[in-house]
């Protein structure tokens, strides 16, 4: 029982990272019907930005929660700027081109980002600086025989906070309404005065900022990131987004959580080498029963 609880917590904290990333995929897909394959790389860039910021901040003598918050803000802002630039340079000129061109452009961007980071930051792994790492994160809370890390609690709760924040943003602000309007009918939205380009930019900025946050979370969680970080994580998060129903925000969160739990349970109670296989079997099974994903809407209703 304690073990099951432990694995559930592990799965959820993994799922939160997937969910934060899946949100970026799903939001961009919702607005542009584009699968932003460079999103995983934006996440990797965010992780690097966070580690660099942590190094600078430690040099200025800050520490603890203040440092962590600054690291988060910097990584999110940096990722947002990268996301904006990617959209502006690689996607906007191609917005009316065939989908395939965008896809190829997206792959080009991800290679570019990977190599740019490799060139500027070196080929080896990057480690979150020990001095910047707040010791209290390593504390554990024993619950019913399981050991739940302070870090895990903090990371899950900050992920949930970000997701709640996103939900409020999308449902209750003018920008959010504009996003939903553009997602449903770009022409009608433009007609009532929504500036499409701005909404698209906002979407990329928000999705990328979430990816930046996920990058920091991962570098705290595992201490170590490499330039290839974005590839598998991006693939997994994309799977999570499709699983939950691409284009659906609650779907991305649900898909992320589900994928994290499935992987962890499979690795623990099945065989660790099959966990990816099981995750993809789950995806195929869901898509066979519900082609639009668990919470996805059918595209037929689109005007």
């Amino acid at each position: 029982m304690a073990d099951f609880l432990q694995q559930t917590v592990n799965g959820l904290s993994l799922g939160c990272v997937y969910a934060l990333l899946a949100l970026g995929y799903t939001m961009v897909y919702g607005i542009l019907q584009l699968i932003n394959f460079a999103h995983g790389e934006v996440y990797m860039v965010g992780a690097y930005a966070g580690i660099l910021a942590a190094g600078w901040l430690v040099a200025t003598g800050s520490s603890g929660l203040l440092l962590l918050s600054c690291v988060f803000l910097f990584a999110m802002a940096y990722a947002a700027v990268v996301g904006l630039a990617v959209e502006r340079i690689a996607y906007r000129p191609l917005r009316d081109a065939p989908r395939l061109c965008l896809l190829i452009s997206a792959m080009g961007v991800s290679f570019f980002l990977q190599n740019a980071v490799m060139l500027t930051q070196g080929k080896g792994d990057k480690v979150f600086p020990q001095e910047a790492y707040p010791a209290f994160l390593d504390g554990v809370i024993p619950v019913a025989g399981a050991t739940i890390g302070v870090k895990q609690v903090l990371l899950v709760s900050s992920s949930l906070l970000l997701m709640a924040f996103l939900r409020v943003l999308v449902l209750h602000t003018r920008t959010g309404r504009a996003m939903r309007a553009v997602a449903q009918d770009r022409v009608a939205a433009a007609l009532v005065g929504v500036r499409i380009d701005r909404v698209v930019s906002m979407t990329f900025a928000i999705g990328s900022a979430l990816a930046g946050a996920a990058g920091v979370i991962v570098s705290l969680e595992y201490r170590q990131v490499g330039t290839t970080l974005g590839f598998t994580a991006g693939l997994k998060a994309f799977t999570a987004a499709v699983l939950g129903g691409i284009g659906s925000i609650p779907g991305a969160v649900l898909g992320g959580g589900l994928l994290g739990l499935t992987e962890t349970y499979t690795a623990r109670y099945g065989a660790s080498e099959y966990k990816d296989a099981v995750a993809f079997v789950l995806l195929i099974a869901v898509l066979l029963l519900r082609p639009t994903g668990i919470l996805g809407h059918s595209q037929a209703g689109r005007a």
Binding site: D3, Q7, R268, S272
Partner: peptide, 20 residues
């Protein structure tokens, strides 16, 4: 005796099966 997959980040599940 357990094998892990190189290149991943999360080995907690494998450790979970060793812990008992």
């Amino acid at each position: 005796e357990e094998g892990i997959v190189q290149g991943e980040q999360d080995y907690r599940a494998v450790l979970g099966s060793v812990k008992p």
